[in-house]
């Protein structure tokens, strides 16, 4: 993996060092969303930015090697479905839709377990945001625009007129 496409060697090397750290930071933001500023959306965006960095530095094929498109589409739906299932489990266990059925306890202040269902909800949202933001970026940047028909004629006309 060297000079085929993508940015310069410096960017590629820095990307190789940073991608794991950025992803890890995103996961931290996701998991500790109920204690520190952040949460599912912010963490998901940071995780997605790791993949977007790879796309920018190496190009889309390398990014697809890290997260294949089919897997990203599956994860996208899976995250949203998990969120719905957590909400439905509240109805199942506690009798009210979206009820916090795991429960909170005053002893567990500032621990991971202090917020009940918020942590799994954040993880589900993070998964959804990660995969859908990555997909949006890759789809829009890797789109091959083929202008044909009317548009082609219009561009050619514009090229000929000074």
């Amino acid at each position: 993996m060297a000079a085929e496409g993508g940015m310069s060697l410096v960017v590629k090397t820095v990307t190789r060092w940073l991608k794991g750290l950025i992803f890890l930071f995103g996961m931290y933001i996701m998991i500790y969303g109920h204690l520190t500023p952040g949460g599912g959306f912010a963490g998901g965006v940071i995780c997605a930015s790791a993949f977007i960095l790879i796309t920018l530095a190496y190009g889309a094929p390398e990014a697809y090697r890290h997260l294949p498109r089919g897997a990203a589409e599956k994860l996208d739906s899976f995250g949203a479905l998990t969120f719905l299932i957590i909400a439905l489990l509240g109805l199942w266990f506690a009798g009210v839709f979206f009820r916090n059925f795991i429960g909170t306890s005053p002893e567990s202040h500032f621990r991971l377990t202090s917020a009940g269902v918020i942590v799994p909800c954040n993880l589900a949202i993070g998964l959804k945001v990660l995969s859908s933001l990555f997909l949006v970026f890759v789809m829009l940047s890797a789109l091959h625009i083929i202008v044909s028909g009317e548009g082609r004629r219009r561009i050619e006309r514009r090229r000929h007129t000074p």
Partner: peptide, 21 residues
């Protein structure tokens, strides 16, 4: 995201970004 995708598709069809065309 939706609007940008629409813009790209519009460019593909019309070969211009000018809405008056």
């Amino acid at each position: 995201a939706l609007l940008v995708a629409l813009c790209l598709r519009l460019y593909e069809k019309y070969g211009t970004f000018d809405i008056s065309e």
